[in-house]
Design a binder for these strands. Structure first.
Lengths: 343, 343
DNA sequence: TTGAAAGCGGTACCAT
DNA sequence: ATGGTACCGCTTTCAA
């Protein structure tokens, strides 16, 4: 009895066992049944079961020079980077569409200053990379250069860089229009003094929302905007910042949250101080995921097509891998105004 | 001028360019600087930059017989499988800890009847697999067998199968204790008629919560439990089911949501019918993520250590890959009662 | 319909 | 400190 090293069962083992060539087994495994006779096929299939053969994905990747895998990197201060519903929807759309096409998705969250060190870049074999980033234009530009140096197509979400180079595609939602809609709505309800509550972090999507709000306000005589930045974009952080703000300032007519979570935090904060929403103060959010129905009153917001954006990115990438070029370099998804009870 | 096929730059190219051996370049790339002289190292580093060399992760994987990658499969009816905060926290904890150890995580959601077909299994090279599953014991057992047939360590989350075989580890939170706590709390507040509202799907964690509730109730004279199953575990599904229930039944003293989302859905439903929470009816949830603060009144719930569970699983796996065995086969994380304003 | 051989790009192993 | 070579397990390519 030979010493049995614990070793992987390979195509060769199956071939030897069945007394056919390696290629025949490979063809059976890959379902290329046209290339294999019926009797041989069955024999091979039995052998595969008997020997409990499991193909090595890695070998196939190396030889075929394709990874069947996409990397998605999420730049976020928070450890629980997937808790953000925009991100989780985006990732789900991406992952699902890739799965349907026999690709996989490798996700990783990374702190802004650790971007380049992400293990995704060094250990994950990928055919293309997706990223959603915060930071200034210059910072993001540097990171994009880093991505492109990896000789892979890149898809950016919610980014304002222009896709000058042919290796990049950008998928955005129309945050500016969203900001405009939400501001226009509260203005039409006679709000004059608006407060935009947003994270302190530089974040392209938030800047766009703020721009949209400002545009709407500029058109309205007598309307005025203040902006409150929270150090942390969290629920508690927002409540702390707003409480401090209200201690020194009068209650505005409307508080516009940069995200749903910020809007709801603001709402609860006002309610705790005895204000009635929307009678004393209107409150709005941004993104329109499940949570906007959780508040009481329910949140007026703008819904994001995040899932669809993820799907779209997956389509773009698969096309790009097949044809060698992106079918479109910039995509702008419309957002939808969603009226709740809070404004 | 030679015809330039677009081709990957390899270690050999760098070696030739620098006039050193392939191994020397490999050692530089991998930071094994003790094995390389200073001058050579710098020469090689320059060449790497000049040629824009990017290592092939796949080749390394094949040769070293390690994938540096873990697969996580989430069985869910919903397309947006990551929207569930328990899942997103679990995945974040897993992903972050793996990243820190230069591993990556490949995630995939899959419909219950598509489990085996998931591309994760056929195209992702992984060292180990994680899964969270719904379905009956028998169904889940079959799927686990399928996982084990891939000759990889398996970690199950929130599962009641016993880890009989040495290839499996199970990481659970104490859902039964959680159910017990939450029921005990409302009972201590004089509730007699309780209603547990839960998804219709068979789901080990939910069954455990129900068991815990029942145990608490059995100890209390005069207390009675009804169970309401919603076809869909969604917000709207829950509200529809509850509305129908209330049309034919009196309002219970307390409604226990199987998840936070179900609890909040129930709360809003009651409020819309003019009931005051918690005065007319108490309401509770389960999981205690961000959303439990969104409702008004805030939700009394039980907090899940989901992030920590993900981290723990990552530790278990890395240890298992190093030592060849799981340091523990069953882990039970305690949950914490979190009193809000709703009960 | 089947098979033989080369080779994808690294690392393990051993020699110097 | 550096180099030579086999080889991980599959698919590509070409021959029969």
């Amino acid at each position: 009895m030979a010493a049995r090293k614990k070793q992987r069962v390979t195509l060769r083992d199956v071939a030897k066992f069945t007394d056919v060539s390696v290629m025949t087994v490979s063809n059976v495994v890959n379902g290329k049944i046209k290339l294999v006779g019926n009797a041989t096929r069955e024999k091979v299939e039995r052998a595969i079961k008997t020997l409990k053969y499991v193909p090595s994905a890695t070998s196939r990747k190396l030889r075929s020079m394709r990874e069947f895998s996409i990397g998605m990197i999420v730049m976020d201060h928070e450890l629980s980077f997937l808790a953000n519903p925009f991100i989780s929807q985006l990732v789900a759309g991406l992952s699902n569409h890739l799965s349907q096409n026999n690709f996989t998705l490798t996700v990783q969250g990374v702190a802004p200053d650790m971007f380049r060190g992400a293990s995704l870049f060094s250990v994950a074999g990928t055919d293309a990379l997706c990223a959603i980033m915060s930071g200034t234009n210059a910072e993001r530009q540097k990171n994009v250069s880093f991505l492109l140096d990896r000789h892979q197509p890149v898809v950016l979400f919610q980014d304002t860089l222009n896709a000058g180079r042919s290796g990049i595609a950008i998928v955005n939602q129309d945050d500016e229009a969203g900001g405009h809609m939400i501001a226009t709505h509260v203005l039409s309800r006679k709000a004059k003094k608006l407060l935009f509550i947003r994270p302190n972090t530089e974040w392209p999507a938030i800047e766009k929302r703020e721009e949209g709000i400002k545009t709407a306000i500029a058109k309205k005589r007598g309307a005025k905007l203040s902006v409150l930045k929270c150090d942390e974009g969290t629920f508690q952080g927002a409540q702390a910042a707003l409480t401090e703000y209200l201690a020194e300032n009068a209650m505005p007519d409307a508080i516009l949250g940069g995200t749903d979570a910020l809007g709801i935090a603001a709402m609860r904060c006002c309610q705790d101080q005895g204000y009635v929403v929307p009678d004393d103060v209107m409150v709005t959010g941004f993104n329109g995921f499940a949570a906007c129905n959780y508040s009481n009153p329910s949140l007026t917001t703008v819904t994001s097509p995040a899932y669809e954006m993820g799907e779209h990115a997956a389509k773009l990438i698969l096309q790009r891998l097949e044809t060698g070029r992106f079918s479109s370099r910039q995509t702008l998804f419309p957002v939808t105004f969603k009226e709740g009870e809070s404004a």
